[in-house]
Computed example of a mutant assay.
Amino acid sequence: MQVKLSEQISSSDAETILRHLPDWIQDALIARATEIDYPVEAIIEMAIASFLDTEALSFADCKPRRGQ
């Protein structure tokens, strides 16, 4: 199997990841994506990044449309 590396996960990869998570985690990720109007792929990436690096972009940094 050959792995294709990219800077972002695709929407189909996000769907696959979500399917393998417990329902309550799926619901929380989708709810957060909806709340801040971000794609669920970005929310999954942020969750993984914040787990791996405490200084990575986090959910607290995502405040769309603030200051407008």
Rank of each mutant, 00 (worst) to 15 (best):
residue 49 A to G: 04
residue 19 R to N: 14
residue 54 T to P: 08
residue 47 A to V: 14
residue 3 V to L: 05
residue 12 S to W: 00
residue 27 D to V: 14
residue 38 Y to M: 07
residue 48 I to V: 15
residue 45 E to M: 15
residue 12 S to T: 13
residue 29 L to T: 07
residue 50 S to G: 05
residue 45 E to C: 06
residue 36 I to K: 01
residue 23 D to K: 14
residue 11 S to Y: 01
residue 68 Q to G: 05
residue 5 L to P: 01
residue 63 K to F: 05
residue 36 I to H: 07
residue 14 A to K: 01
residue 35 E to L: 10
residue 6 S to Y: 13
residue 26 Q to T: 06
residue 12 S to R: 11
residue 54 T to Y: 04
residue 1 M to H: 07
residue 40 V to A: 05
residue 65 R to F: 13
residue 53 D to A: 07
residue 24 W to R: 15
residue 49 A to F: 06
residue 67 G to V: 03
residue 55 E to Y: 07
residue 56 A to Y: 05
residue 11 S to M: 11
residue 27 D to L: 15
residue 15 E to S: 14
residue 50 S to M: 08
residue 42 A to C: 00
residue 43 I to M: 15
residue 29 L to C: 10
residue 60 A to T: 15
residue 60 A to C: 04
residue 37 D to W: 13
residue 6 S to E: 05
residue 55 E to G: 07
residue 29 L to K: 01
residue 56 A to E: 02
residue 41 E to R: 00
residue 53 D to V: 08
residue 1 M to D: 08
residue 13 D to I: 11
residue 29 L to W: 05
residue 11 S to W: 00
residue 25 I to D: 01
residue 33 A to C: 05
residue 49 A to Q: 04
residue 37 D to E: 10
residue 3 V to E: 03
residue 58 S to D: 08
residue 57 L to C: 11
residue 40 V to L: 09
residue 31 A to K: 06
residue 25 I to H: 12
residue 61 D to S: 15
residue 25 I to F: 04
residue 49 A to V: 09
residue 34 T to D: 13
residue 21 L to M: 08
residue 8 Q to H: 10
residue 33 A to V: 12
residue 11 S to H: 10
residue 26 Q to E: 01
residue 11 S to E: 02
residue 36 I to E: 14
residue 47 A to N: 09
residue 6 S to Q: 03
residue 27 D to G: 13
residue 47 A to H: 02
residue 35 E to T: 14
residue 49 A to I: 09
residue 61 D to G: 09
residue 26 Q to N: 11
residue 52 L to V: 15
residue 22 P to D: 02
residue 56 A to H: 03
residue 66 R to I: 03
residue 55 E to S: 05
residue 4 K to W: 10
residue 62 C to S: 06
residue 20 H to F: 02
residue 3 V to S: 00
residue 64 P to L: 12
residue 28 A to N: 06
residue 62 C to L: 08
residue 41 E to W: 09
residue 18 L to G: 03
residue 32 R to Y: 12
residue 65 R to M: 11
residue 27 D to E: 06
residue 55 E to I: 04
residue 37 D to Y: 09
residue 7 E to F: 10
residue 7 E to S: 13
residue 44 I to P: 01
residue 8 Q to L: 04
residue 15 E to R: 04
residue 31 A to F: 11
residue 55 E to C: 02
residue 5 L to Q: 03
residue 53 D to W: 09
residue 61 D to H: 13
residue 9 I to T: 04
residue 39 P to M: 05
residue 9 I to L: 12
residue 13 D to T: 13
residue 58 S to C: 09
residue 39 P to V: 03
